[in-house]
Simulated scan of single mutants.
Amino acid sequence: MPSKPDLSIKESQGRKNKKPRKWVRRTGLSLLAVIFLGVVIFMLIPSPVQPAKWLAPSAPSFEQAGPWQQNNKLSSAELVTDAPKFPEFITFDKEGTLYTGDSDGKIYKVAFDGKGNPQKAQLYADTKGTPNGLMFDASGNLIVTDVQKGLLSVDPSGNVTVLADQVDGTPIYLANELDIAKDGTIYFSDTSNYGRVTFKEIAENKPHGRLLKYDPATKQTTVMLEGLYFANGVALSADEDFVLVAESYHYQLTRYWLKGPKKGTSDIFADNLAGFPDNITRDYQGHFWVGLFTTRIPFVDQMHGSPWLAGMMAKLPQSLLSGASAPVKHGLAVELNSQGKLIGSWHDPAGSLYGVTTAVNHDGYLYIGTAPGGSQGVHRVLLTK
């Protein structure tokens, strides 16, 4: 006759099995309570900014025929030098030597041989800051806009002098890019009184940038234009009747009139660009080349239409938002004529060259610079007619 099961043992095992289940259930409920409480606290914390609503225009399509249509013109880019990791801006001296800065403060120069082949990069100077804009004045000094130091002058021996770090009793918060007129006047951008690039400013969607002017004769700096949405690239027209400044966060180029009946006023030169315009350069035809650091980010455009969402995003730590504002891996530069009409766009849809800040038309090549977050080194592509 089979033995009867020991019910006391089963009951004991049942009690033991119930204990882990209760512990898991209680732990899960506790975690949910903590998460819920954290969400409530996050929602109740005031946002550090009061965002302004903006209905961003629909981005141009890369699929439709026209000047924005996608191509592979940048995909064949060759490396000129990888000495500077992030060559924000590129300029040339009268002999055709290339100069560019890096985010660690160093400025390099690259000579070319008789066949146009780049030689090994050489260290030219060190600003101990972050040099962005570079251009030679009539005396052979390299004028530099340094985001940490202000407006600088570097003599041929590499000695660095501060020309301006204040205007009207306030700091020059983030000197970014420049151009120099024939009379020596320097026009340059002060990107934002935030003093650094931060997602909070994108979320806030309010203008904090300025266009400044430095007079080398009087050594005085004045404000030309205020209320710019992340003031960036700067370029004079061929006749110097106006100066352009890029407003990166509103996808547009603004024109400030220096001569003529509109002198002292501003208007929009080009708008609804397909990305965030960075630097502007002018070529021998009087055309403007613009590097677009990233193509449009749909989430950012949607966020601008919802101040509540933008305010929530601004609460998050910058470290968590770096991915949200990282450049799309799609290289892009554009050419505009002197009236602001888009002539054509240059793409690398594969993203081997991206985070484009500068496009310089020089001696049959288009030279490309980038910034942190993008690809590294100076590149160039052959310009074809």
Rank of each mutant, 00 (worst) to 15 (best):
Ser248Gln: 00
Gln220Tyr: 07
Gln285Met: 15
Asp278Phe: 10
Ile297Met: 10
Lys262Cys: 03
Tyr214Asn: 10
Gly227Leu: 06
Glu204Gly: 05
Thr294His: 09
Gln302Thr: 00
Gly264Leu: 10
Gln302Ser: 01
Glu247Gln: 15
Gln252Phe: 01
Arg210Trp: 00
Trp308Leu: 15
Leu292Gln: 04
Thr218Met: 06
Asn272Phe: 13
Glu204Gln: 10
Ala238Leu: 13
Gln220Gly: 14
Asn205His: 14
Trp289Gln: 12
Thr294Trp: 06
Leu292Trp: 07
His250Leu: 11
His287Asp: 13
Asn205Arg: 10
Tyr284Gln: 15
Tyr249Ile: 05
Leu253Asp: 09
Glu226His: 11
Ser266His: 11
Ala274Gly: 09
His208Gln: 05
Glu201Met: 10
Gly286Asp: 03
Tyr229Glu: 13
Phe299Asn: 00
Arg282Lys: 07
Arg210Thr: 00
Phe288Tyr: 11
Thr265Asn: 03
Pro261His: 05
Glu201Arg: 08
Ala246Lys: 04
Met224Thr: 02
Met303Phe: 08
Ile280Arg: 12
Asp271Met: 04
Val234Glu: 00
Gln285Cys: 11
Leu211Ala: 03
Arg296Ile: 07
Thr254Met: 09
Leu212His: 04
Asp283His: 08
Ile268Asp: 12
Thr222Asn: 04
Lys206Ala: 00
Asp215Cys: 01
Ser306Phe: 06
Glu247His: 09
Gly233Glu: 09
Ala310Ser: 12
Glu226Arg: 15
Val290Asp: 06
Ser266Lys: 12
Ser237Cys: 08
Met224Ser: 02
Pro277Ser: 02
Glu204Arg: 08
Gly264Val: 12
Asp267Ser: 06
Tyr284Arg: 15
Gly233Val: 09
Lys259Trp: 13
Phe288Asp: 08
Thr265Glu: 08
Gln252Pro: 05
Asn272Ile: 12
Gln220Asn: 13
Thr294Arg: 09
Ser266Gln: 12
Trp289Ser: 09
Lys219Thr: 00
Leu292His: 07
Thr294Tyr: 07
Ser306Tyr: 06
Trp289Gly: 10
Asp267Ala: 01
Tyr284Leu: 15
Phe242Leu: 01
Ala217Glu: 12
Met224Tyr: 00
His304Phe: 08
Asp301His: 07
Lys206Trp: 00
Gly233Gln: 11
Phe276Lys: 03
Asp215Val: 00
Ala310Met: 05
His250Pro: 02
Arg296Phe: 03
Pro207Ser: 06
Phe230Ala: 10
Asp278Met: 08
Val245Cys: 14
Val234Ile: 01
Ala310Tyr: 02
Gly227Cys: 04
Glu204Asp: 10
Leu236His: 04
Val234Phe: 02
Tyr251Phe: 14
Gly275Thr: 01
Leu292Val: 05
Val290Phe: 06
Arg210Lys: 01
Lys262Arg: 08
